[in-house]
Design a protein around this nucleic acid. Structure first.
Lengths: 210, 210
DNA sequence: ATAAGCATGTAAGGAGTTACATGATTCT
DNA sequence: AGAATCATGTAACTCCTTACATGCTTAT
């Protein structure tokens, strides 16, 4: 349940696929789990030390003297299964884009539009990333056992990205209509209205939500 | 850019719609921004104190002596616009569901299926929540200015929830096919195989990603 | 009267990021 | 020889959550 256990889960999971160094662990987590998971550098080494203390992973000197490969112990595999079986803790959402859109009337239509365009670009980039991930997964014969499950996570990324693109397109159309409506109200000023600081009425509104 | 500024943004934004107490602030953030934003209790009061110190909000005694209503100052409104114009920091993803699915071969097909079913239920619940939010928004005449922007965030929630449902349906079909394939391989055991701990080969795999 | 909800704050602690320090190895 | 990359770790700091402490007001 505590959040640090999720870090342990990610590390044990990665090591269950293949033993590796802490450095490699970080790169795999970034590159392979990156679209739905992240661990920072200063998190991985302390977590590895703790897992070693509990005999859930073992380090073996290999290559240079300063390089250790970490591997799951049998107890580590059991622990991984235990951790995976615990209910996922729902993350507290903190979506900076939607926060800005919500207060879009203060931000202004043009800046809002740029935010949405940017979000659409990011979603498109994710879509191609998912495509790359799917190809390299299917090329890797050693992952045959895991592939069906990993494909579910790739598909989730694609669904999410496509939803973002569809939403962005609708939002852009909506914003364009709002801009037109503004122009109809004030046909004398077809250029950027620049009404920043103009409506000096931040005063009492009376409901917000119900 | 620092994360605490996002807290200030949320608070200033809420107060730009309507002055209120710290307690009400927390409830509005939970109920109105809840599907894309969260602030914890212990965050709001210190942030309000800091904003007051910077003269961005003002408190006025009202009602009981122990109850203060906070309101934006003109400087606070300008600061809000400044903060909204800063680029949103992308949140580090931490999706416990996808982490478990990724390692689904260790978790087992049945537990994986339950996770997906649960995710679909949550998405359906969000869809009805969004519907409620849209209705109460359109009923509230005082939010007419903000409504077009707020609707964009509601629409984002709907797109996201519908994508989750569509994904879950595909995933469930996929998981059902996987279960069938297992049964064809081992037609002697049509019941729950319970092969937990059976394949005791956590040993060397050789690629993981490329 | 008493329970539920409104209201304000503080303190302790855990989580997580960033930057720093250090050195080995490999490529050019 | 020098640069890039691999590799391990620590320390300081920010952020955030949770639990606690307190007391008022309103409904039952």
């Amino acid at each position: 349940m505590p959040r640090s256990e999720q870090t342990q889960t990610a590390i044990l999971g990665a090591l269950s696929i293949m033993p590796m160094t802490g450095y490699a662990l970080r790169e795999e987590i970034r590159d392979t789990l990156g679209h739905f998971w992240s661990e920072s550098f200063g998190q991985i080494y302390p977590a590895l030390a703790e897992l070693e203390r509990q005999s859930l992973v073992e380090r073996s000197a290999e290559g240079g003297s300063r390089s250790h490969t970490f591997a799951l112990t049998p107890a580590g595999l059991l622990r991984l299964r235990e951790l995976l079986a615990e209910p996922p803790q729902q993350e507290k959402p903190r979506n900076g884009l939607l926060l800005r859109l919500f207060f879009g009337s203060q931000l202004g239509a043009e800046a809002t539009r740029r935010l949405v365009l940017d979000a659409r670009e990011k979603a498109k980039a994710q879509l191609t990333q998912m495509d790359v991930a799917r190809r390299s997964l299917l090329d890797d014969a050693s992952l045959a056992d895991q592939a069906p499950y990993i494909l579910l996570t790739i598909s989730a990324g694609e669904h999410s990205a496509r939803a973002s693109i569809a939403w962005a397109n609708e939002a852009l159309a909506e914003l364009a209509m709002m801009a037109e409506a503004v122009m109809l109200e004030a046909p004398e000023a077809p250029n950027t209205p620049d009404d920043r600081d103009a409506p000096e009425t931040p005063s009492a509104r009376n409901s917000f939500g119900s």
